[in-house]
């Protein structure tokens, strides 16, 4: 896609974060354009999840700037964060569903909170569930679902708000390998539909090679390589990229 003429939807400038004086992000610079699907890969502890959580300030960056749709996120007052977060969907590794609510209620939760009428919210929730193939499980509770189903509910919940940006924090890491595919399918379908910009942290190399517009490799708090999957996997420059390339082949 041609990103030269459009301002980035998300700009990350020199983002830094430390935990107990141990630097986790050492000055990340990244621009993401609307409609892109960006995959972030790297070894555990390289700062991938921290980066993603800093974007909607679930984790507070220590320094740097995050500008989302022209809004300086890092200096936004707390009271205004809610509005920002509504526009940024988040899919968690552990699904993070509300156990006391059934599937439909979980998906309609935010819609109801933000003032939609019950019926309208229900309809929209059902549409979201249809997109993830779980209409028939609308009345079930999270404890009655498999891991893959729960994660699909999580996806539907995030989609129901029609976010501008979807953040995915290792959405398949907690799933059995058998269940991973059902989630990957949903993700690939979303990518194909191009309805939202996605920033996905994952180890799924195959998905990354098929779906990503760009793959960003991180290591020890910095971006070591980024580029189109074809480029990075054919001629990886960084060691991390080379390792992931081997995974791709296998």
């Amino acid at each position: 896609m041609n990103t030269a003429l459009r301002p980035p939807l998300l700009q990350i400038q020199d983002l830094k974060k430390s935990y107990q004086k141990r630097p986790v992000l050492k000055g990340i610079n990244l621009n993401i354009f609307a409609g892109e699907t960006i995959i972030i890969m790297g070894p555990s502890g390289c700062g991938k999840s921290t980066l993603v959580r800093c974007i909607n300030r679930l984790t507070e960056p220590d320094d740097g700037h995050i500008i989302f749709d022209g809004v300086e996120v890092t200096s936004l007052p707390f009271a205004q964060l809610s509005g920002l977060r509504r526009r940024i969907g988040f899919v968690f590794q552990q699904f993070n569903l509300i156990r006391r609510l059934n599937v439909l209620e979980n998906v309609a939760f935010a819609l109801r909170i933000y003032g939609q009428e019950k019926t309208e919210a229900r309809d929209r929730a059902m549409q979201a569930l249809a997109r993830v193939g779980l209409r028939e499980r609308a009345q079930n509770f999270p404890a009655e679902l498999s891991g893959g189903e729960q994660q699909r509910v999580g996806i539907a919940r995030a989609l129901a708000l029609e976010p501008q940006l979807m953040l995915w924090d290792e959405p398949t890491a907690a799933l059995d390998p058998i269940l991973v595919s059902e989630v990957i399918e949903i993700m690939e379908e979303l990518v194909r539909q191009k309805e939202t910009t996605m920033l996905v942290v994952t180890h799924e190399v195959g998905f990354a090679s098929r779906a990503a517009d760009r793959i960003i490799f991180m290591d020890q708090g910095t971006i070591v390589e980024e580029g189109h999957p074809t480029a990075v996997f054919s001629t990886p420059q960084s060691e991390i990229a080379k390792k992931y390339k081997k995974l791709l082949k296998t």
Binding site: N56, R85, F90, F95, N96, L97, R99, A110, L161
Partner: peptide, 10 residues
């Protein structure tokens, strides 16, 4: 997890 989910939903 539920609390974080709530915050993440805005």
């Amino acid at each position: 997890d539920e609390v974080v989910a709530g915050y993440a939903l805005g």
